[in-house]
Design a protein around this nucleic acid. Sequence first.
DNA 1: TATGAATGAGTCTTCATTCAT
DNA 2: AATGAATGAAGACTCATTCAT
Lengths: 200, 200, 200, 200
Amino acid sequence: MPEGVVDKREAILRAAGKVFAERGYHATGISDIARELGAGHGTFYRYFKNKEDIARSVVSRALGRISDALSDEDPGSAETLSQYREQVRRIGRKLFELVVAEPELGRILFYDAIAIDRAEPDLAGQAMEAAAAYTAAFIRNGQDRGFLRRDLDAHVVGLAVNGMIVTGAVRLLHVQDPAGMGQPWIHTVETLMFDGLGSS
Amino acid sequence: MPEGVVDKREAILRAAGKVFAERGYHATGISDIARELGAGHGTFYRYFKNKEDIARSVVSRALGRISDALSDEDPGSAETLSQYREQVRRIGRKLFELVVAEPELGRILFYDAIAIDRAEPDLAGQAMEAAAAYTAAFIRNGQDRGFLRRDLDAHVVGLAVNGMIVTGAVRLLHVQDPAGMGQPWIHTVETLMFDGLGSS
Amino acid sequence: MPEGVVDKREAILRAAGKVFAERGYHATGISDIARELGAGHGTFYRYFKNKEDIARSVVSRALGRISDALSDEDPGSAETLSQYREQVRRIGRKLFELVVAEPELGRILFYDAIAIDRAEPDLAGQAMEAAAAYTAAFIRNGQDRGFLRRDLDAHVVGLAVNGMIVTGAVRLLHVQDPAGMGQPWIHTVETLMFDGLGSS
Amino acid sequence: MPEGVVDKREAILRAAGKVFAERGYHATGISDIARELGAGHGTFYRYFKNKEDIARSVVSRALGRISDALSDEDPGSAETLSQYREQVRRIGRKLFELVVAEPELGRILFYDAIAIDRAEPDLAGQAMEAAAAYTAAFIRNGQDRGFLRRDLDAHVVGLAVNGMIVTGAVRLLHVQDPAGMGQPWIHTVETLMFDGLGSS
DNA sequence: TATGAATGAGTCTTCATTCAT
DNA sequence: AATGAATGAAGACTCATTCAT
């Protein structure tokens, strides 16, 4: 694929992501994206099949951003409980910073991905599964190494933990002071994961 | 408000909820709801301002169903940690059974509520806040009575815990055997809340 | 079907026929028909599936007009050659008068019917076949009764004779003095059919 | 005009004719022709003004093919009725073989020529006139030489005869066994022209 | 009160044409 | 001369909403 084509596709996805995040998938017209990009709207159809194709590509791109941000984190690297705790904190901070820096990502993944046609393939559902599998790999590593309890299904734990994270990310999009939200939130998740709520 | 009017409103909301859950908010036409209800579509406009008004009412009604299911659970009733654990399990089972029995509720709250026009008031966000406040009340009760740790913000804990629950409910809508999902899921949430993942 | 619905369909077909005849199928926009009818263009889609559906219905209606004009002519009624000659003249005059009175019919059948989507069912081709079969029935009657030669395939004769008639009708749409064209044209077709071109 | 330019024009017309015949004028995109030709679609606009110009040129080229096929037939050559009969049969066979060999020609002339924008100059109508004038010249020759009846307008006869021929050619495009259609068809036209339908 | 025919604003999508390279 | 990326006018079609009955 020639360089120019990739650039144009990228530019379209960036513009589309911005507008989808602002107005939402259904409220966004092709012409809105065209205006944002400063191009004729016929141009989109040279790079994408239709509006839904653009939207799905925007979501995929956003998922890629998340995935890139965590590419350094190897699910099998932690050897002790405290190493894993540290890893959880680090991942939490990375995700947190990513969403604070680009709230668009959150809006695209948590709002628009769900609003795109409820047909297969279910982009949001698939992404949630993939994310759970990733998190589960960490849990399974801990179970294999003996520092995490074995009586829980790693995949279910993965889903539950991700559920907390996603909820935090969504909340981030609505609070007055997103940056100040990070510390308490990460601390809460970490405490729930490793200590539980019981006193002392 | 006369009795008949309430009945008709209810009937419309029931029909609309069914169709929204099946097809999604944007893919649903007023005429689809009319067909489901067996009434002319002009009728809706005697009871609701517009399509969005119907959708918001459907979501509110669904929230009411959840709230009703938990009306017996008093956030201030648990006096000990083990009483609260038992209460958490009970609430978990209730929610679980509700969504298994009426998957519509899940689809309306987790998919359609988000797809409704991204304008204020943000129905989904408000609902999440309300739910978090409710859960936080339980946490605060435990903190006040001394059986839950005090170093966490009760509201943040409420959000995190609800995040796990919502994720489970969403997953329920997609698995082959929803009924079999309950036990492991509730157990996982309970363990995370009270014991943490550490081994022994 | 209620009376009003039939009327509206009819009114749409009349308006559409007029505009199609004037501008041609492809050059005609739904909005042109709407303007002609004095109705909103959304209205069409309550009565017809799409633009092609309207056009096919317009053509069918035009075919019906032709067929109605000839409904009195029984292919089996002529008992002698001279009776058949008279019948041919009479049919010629009827068709001639119909197209002179409503040139729209000609334009719709000979231009628009062909321009509508080249997909099956091939409206124009089917109509030509049906017309040939009708004419062939007259020929066959003459062959059976012995006053027409038997060495020609009646269906082929039907097609050839209709070919002459259609060509005349098309020409009618373009000449300065359509009414004056009738006599020589009918005479020519009659002569070719019954006498041949040879002198004396 | 340089040689190369003529070649390229020819190549474009050949490709365009092929695609128009396959899909029809309106369903054919400039890019379809470009793909068929294996050239960029911007190229067309160096040789033709626009899509309609290409189409009109394609039709003219097709008319030229017909005209070439009959270039040997001199309207004034027949000196007797039987010579003219023989000439009619020969012309019939030539046209027949041409359309069987290149059905494209038929589709272009009988379908596409009509579908091109209904603006002046009316290509199809003009062609029909020219063809009628050509046929009429044969008739007039016979009338002048005394072997054809004089009470018919030669031009009208020309149109009528051509109408039969065109109808046969159109039919050729649709039948299962085009080659087998020739003999009966030519025989029918010949019989109608010279003998009439009357028995014995 | 209930209906559903009518409406037309709004939207996606196509494709002939242009023009910088 | 040849190309094909870019463009935007044009057009078909949908559907929430209105209102006369």
